[in-house]
Computed example of a mutant assay.
Amino acid sequence: MIFFISKSSKSIIKVILLFVTCISLFACSRPAFQGADISNGPIGGSFTLTDHHGKLRHSDDFKGKVVVLFFGFTQCPDVCPTTMSELKSTMEQLGEQAKNVQVLFVSVDPERDTKEILSEYVPAFHPNFLGLNGNPEQLEQITKKFRIIYQKQAQGDSYTMDHSAASYLIDKTGKTRVMVNYGAGSSVFTHDIKLLLAE
């Protein structure tokens, strides 16, 4: 069977092909995150916790800034201080742009991480970092929204905490966009935060 295409049809096809090509080029030229792009995923949402100054903070308080959300505990021997040190380096690399970034350290050990403990631990990495704590219900709500797993593990007469080690980048509108795996390094944080700041 032979199909005949009129001149007008050929013009329409050319326009469609040109449009598709432009869209493809735009998608390809858009900078890619170095962390995992979770922009279209179900991770994230609003939360309310208390900061290390004793002030009640809602996630909406940080809109207009790029937020780095990390879950840990102050007695963590390696994962937490490593990530917090990377974030300190990230703030240095960002220079003037750092003022538009807020790092939030959410404690998964509210039993021991009091306001006083958090106020000593978190700002030791950077004066603008905030430590957040909450009651068991608040902690359960935020960890469910961000798919964080945490549990106590007996350690002699005391205990330690096992917990998810990834960090989340939240854009200026409050949408969770990127997951950065533990150990990715400060350059990954810096790269992806700059992309979000540019939006």
Rank of each mutant, 00 (worst) to 15 (best):
Y159W: 08
K115T: 11
S89T: 13
A154H: 06
N128K: 12
D113V: 08
S59H: 10
S164I: 03
L169T: 01
Q102V: 00
T114F: 09
R57W: 04
F189H: 09
K55L: 07
F125C: 08
F73C: 08
E86Q: 14
C80G: 11
G185F: 04
N181C: 06
P81H: 06
Y159Q: 08
Q141R: 13
I149F: 14
G64M: 10
V106Q: 13
K65C: 03
E120Q: 15
E92P: 01
E86F: 09
Y168S: 03
V101S: 06
Q93C: 04
S186I: 06
S89I: 09
K88D: 12
V178K: 11
Q102L: 11
Q102R: 01
F70T: 03
V68D: 09
L104I: 04
L104Q: 02
V68N: 07
P110N: 13
V108T: 00
T143A: 11
G174N: 02
F70L: 04
V108R: 03
Q138E: 15
K55C: 06
Q93V: 01
A98C: 02
S59D: 10
K63E: 11
S107H: 06
Q155I: 10
C76I: 09
L118M: 11
R112N: 04
K152V: 04
E111K: 15
A124Y: 14
K172W: 04
K175Q: 15
A124M: 12
G72M: 15
L195H: 02
L104A: 12
V67F: 07
S85A: 14
I193G: 01
K194C: 11
M91V: 00
I149Y: 15
H126K: 02
A154R: 13
H58K: 15
G95C: 01
E96D: 14
A98D: 00
Y150Q: 12
M84S: 03
T82K: 04
V79W: 06
R112S: 08
V79S: 13
E137C: 06
C80M: 11
Q138G: 14
T114P: 03
L196C: 06
A165T: 01
V103Q: 00
